[in-house]
Amino acid sequence: MKRAIPVLALSVAGLVPVWIYSPGAAHEGEINEAAAAPPAQTQQQTTAPRTTAPQTTGSAPKATGAAPKTTQQQTTQQQAQNRTVPGPAVNTSEGTVQVQVTLQGTKIVDVKALRAPNSNPTRMALPLLRESALKAQSADIDTVSGATATSEGYKQSLQAAIDGAQ
């Protein structure tokens, strides 16, 4: 069941064009993310109870509490063009599952659960991921993320080229 939600979400997403708008009411005791968050929000603040990572505030002042601006700007831009489509409610052995897909044109930009059984395995599976094929690209960049653990590795790395270029 753990993997069933993303798989279900993706297969449901494939059917988006033929869906007819028919929102279903959430049942008590189930997670209803649409009620808790604006539907067009593409941020990933979705799951019900999650463990909280420890904050590393310590004695040094926290650098910034603000969310990254990039994400906020993208969200605002996307809100103008996005439309959300709720999928059909599907009965599974764990309970009823219903997902909502956010589209930008014909591109899926977000999938979230409208309804999911409030049992452990499915609750944990809710942060939905997009899946795609790995592509290679070269582009103008300011820095590279990716381990250059050894000095030899660094010498040959893109980051060394960037450091040396300036």
Partner: peptide, 9 residues
Amino acid sequence: RVYSSPGLP
């Protein structure tokens, strides 16, 4: 295969 979060900038 690539797995990415919707909120990735």
